[in-house]
Simulated assay, not measured.
Amino acid sequence: MLNGVAFEVFVNAVNLQDKSKTMDDVPLVYHANGYSGRSGNTGGSYKDNNLDDNIMNLIPDTGVVQQLSYNAGYIKNDWKNDKLDGWRYYDDIDNGSSPYAAISKFKETAAHEIGHEILQAYYGTTFSWQHKGSSYYLPQKYKTYKRRQNNY
């Protein structure tokens, strides 16, 4: 707002100089009333001389791994021994208080996955993929560890 007048600004940033410094596109996949979609690391555009950069560049970006999934409606999760066989209703209300609020869940997941790209750019592939040391680099499995007092 400037002198009581509201302005709206639209920006379309396009890096035409150096594509190696530009983040990859982020495919968005909408899932409704069926199996849940799994979001995956959107990264892969930065080169830190890690062997995985070469391997990832050989795999076409089809949106299977590198994607953001928005899950809404009746969604089937792959939960074992669940009394509702994994089915839950994800509503489109952004209240944040429900674990099944589709918009809140999507915001958190998108920030997490895009964060991988930022971490990769500044600290390298290994750091980005290890989730602050809470998972192994390859295979991507959780480490069992005692939570620290500061709960990162």
Rank of each mutant, 00 (worst) to 15 (best):
S36C: 11
V26W: 03
Y145F: 08
D25V: 08
N49Q: 13
Y30F: 13
K83V: 07
N95W: 01
D53F: 08
G133D: 06
S20N: 10
H112F: 02
R147E: 04
H131F: 09
E117L: 08
D52N: 11
H131I: 15
V26F: 07
K83G: 03
Q130S: 13
V26I: 06
A72C: 15
A110P: 02
Y136H: 07
S97N: 10
L51G: 10
M56K: 14
N49L: 11
I59M: 13
D48P: 03
T125I: 15
H116K: 00
F10D: 15
N151S: 11
G37P: 01
S36A: 08
T125Q: 05
E113Y: 07
G73L: 01
V65K: 07
D85Y: 06
D18T: 12
I55F: 05
T126I: 14
Y142C: 13
T144M: 06
N95Y: 03
K141H: 15
A121H: 14
V11F: 14
K76L: 14
S98I: 08
Y145E: 06
K107S: 01
T144Q: 10
K146C: 04
D53R: 05
G96H: 08
T22V: 10
F10Q: 14
L51E: 09
L16F: 13
D82I: 00
F10E: 14
P60M: 03
P99S: 13
N77P: 04
S20D: 08
D94N: 09
V64M: 07
E113D: 04
V65N: 12
N81T: 04
V14G: 01
W79F: 11
T109G: 00
G115P: 00
S45A: 12
S20T: 12
F106S: 00
V9P: 03
K107V: 00
F7S: 12
L2V: 09
N57G: 09
N71K: 00
W79K: 15
D53E: 09
H131M: 11
K146D: 13
G43Q: 05
